Simulated assay, not measured.
Amino acid sequence: MIYRIGVIGQFNLTFELAWKALQEILKMHGADGAATGSPREILQLGYKLGFVDDAAVWLLMLKKRIHLFIYIMNKKLMR
């Protein structure tokens, strides 16, 4: 159980850093909407501008991230 939560935590951290780094790159390139976009909007904008190769994979990771958060919260509530 502890390993699973550790892996989930690392996944969340890595995903968070990735989309925020993409956001900063988009801002540096003057992309409209980069400053205030949600993770989904940033990923879609990055794909549109050619910074992301496979938007479907990134959007799937975003979806999994939400499901993993719910999983962790349920585990904490069950204690």
Rank of each mutant, 00 (worst) to 15 (best):
I2R: 15
I2F: 09
I2T: 14
Y3L: 08
Y3I: 08
Y3M: 05
R4F: 04
R4H: 06
I5K: 02
G6A: 09
V7K: 15
V7C: 05
V7D: 06
I8M: 10
I8C: 02
I8G: 02
I8R: 01
G9F: 01
G9P: 00
Q10H: 11
Q10A: 08
F11C: 03
F11Q: 07
F11G: 01
N12F: 01
T14E: 09
T14P: 00
F15R: 05
E16C: 06
E16D: 13
L17I: 04
L17E: 03
L17A: 05
A18R: 00
W19S: 03
W19M: 03
K20A: 01
K20E: 07
K20Q: 05
A21G: 02
A21K: 09
L22S: 11
Q23F: 07
E24C: 05
I25T: 15
L26Q: 13
L26W: 12
L26E: 10
K27Y: 00
M28S: 15
M28E: 14
H29M: 14
A31M: 06
A31W: 02
D32F: 01
G33Y: 02
T36Q: 11
T36Y: 06
P39Q: 08
P39L: 05
P39H: 10
P39D: 06
R40L: 03
R40A: 12
I42H: 14
I42L: 15
I42P: 13
L43M: 12
Q44L: 07
L45I: 10
L45S: 11
G46W: 07
G46Q: 10
Y47D: 11
Y47H: 15
K48T: 09
K48N: 08
G50K: 07
F51W: 13
F51L: 15
F51E: 11
V52A: 09
V52N: 09
V52H: 09
D53H: 05
D53Q: 11
D54K: 11
D54Q: 08
D54P: 00
D54M: 01
A55P: 10
V57L: 14
V57E: 06
W58F: 14
W58K: 03
L59M: 10
L59V: 05
L60W: 09
L60C: 08
M61T: 04
K63S: 11
K63A: 09
K64M: 12
R65I: 02
I66N: 15
I66Q: 14
I66L: 10
H67V: 03
H67L: 13
H67C: 07
L68K: 00
L68P: 00
F69L: 13
F69R: 10
F69N: 14
Y71R: 04
I72A: 04
M73E: 14
N74L: 11
N74C: 07
K75L: 12
L77C: 00
M78V: 09
M78A: 15
